[in-house]
């Protein structure tokens, strides 16, 4: 099986800055896996995501990635003048898709994230969690092989975040997409990911396999032990 994302010796220094945002990153993301990038603020997690998304170009190294990726943003990045279904359908129209195709795909993913009853609502009529579900559905509707999530739940309350974790796992289970998610919450990474890439000081320090059975529960002893191990990794690195 070919890995959809391969980063080789990737470096990125932003224009006008002398300090690199990331340096010498080597990372392979396996097909259908859920990878979480964690680390303290400013360590370069989002830069890696932007490079994979094609929003930034590396200043060194090479990237292999699919031409189409879907992305879920922290802000949701929904267009306020469009309804839920129009927002979800947006990537399809952008590629010149037909109305019928857009309706089919949109209905499928809107239902998958349980937004069927809200599909004619505008973003301002939705809660933060509902907006993120629209963002997920839109990323899925792009029919991209890879989904990139940039701290999508960081602005939400814990109950909504738990709910969205369930939706995300459900979507991942049903679509078998490759997911790369940036998070600053270790608990979130252990709960969701197959592997956790730990970053610090613009470098990738370690990649840890999460060998916990699913569904994972935050109160389980093994979960807590694993969480502690990751936290120690973060501190020791």
């Amino acid at each position: 099986m070919i890995n959809p994302i391969v980063l080789k010796n990737i470096g990125k220094t932003y224009f006008g800055s002398k300090i690199p945002a990331i340096s010498d990153i080597n990372l392979e993301v396996k097909k259908n896996e859920f990878l979480c990038l964690i680390g303290p603020s400013g360590c370069g997690k989002t830069t890696i995501l932007k490079l994979i998304a094609g929003l930034e170009q590396p200043t060194g190294g090479t990237i292999e990635k699919p031409a189409n990726v879907g992305m879920v943003f922290q802000s949701g990045a929904l267009l306020p003048w469009l309804t839920v279904e129009e927002n979800v359908a947006f990537p399809i129209y952008a590629k010149g898709g037909s109305k019928e195709k857009a309706e089919d795909i949109t209905n499928k993913y809107v239902r998958m994230v349980a937004l069927g009853e809200l599909k004619l609502k505008y973003p301002r009529e939705l809660s933060g969690g509902q907006k993120q579900r629209v963002g997920i559905a839109r990323a899925l509707a792009s029919e991209a092989e890879v989904l990139l999530l940039d701290e999508p739940f960081s602005a939400l309350d814990p109950i909504t975040t738990d709910e969205l974790h369930e939706y995300l796992l459900k979507v991942w289970g049903e679509t078998h997409k490759t997911i790369v998610m940036v998070s600053h919450l270790t608990e979130e990474a252990v709960l969701l990911a197959d592997r956790i890439a730990i970053m610090k000081d613009a470098a990738l320090k370690n990649i840890v396999e999460v060998n916990l059975k699913r569904p994972r529960k935050e109160e389980d002893k093994k979960f807590l032990e694993f969480l502690e191990k990751i936290k120690q990794e973060l501190i020791s690195n």
């Binding site: 932007k50 998304a53 094609g54 929003l55 990726v69 879907g70 992305m71 943003f73 922290q74 802000s75 949701g76 990045a77 267009l79 947006f90 990537p91 952008a94 590629k95 792009s142």
Partner: peptide, 20 residues
């Protein structure tokens, strides 16, 4: 984020002008 979304979904030129 809106501009990034447009870039990711390859919305460019007149399409970007009209829809975004």
């Amino acid at each position: 984020d809106i501009l990034s979304a447009a870039q990711i979904y390859k919305i460019k030129g007149l399409r970007k002008l009209w829809y975004i």
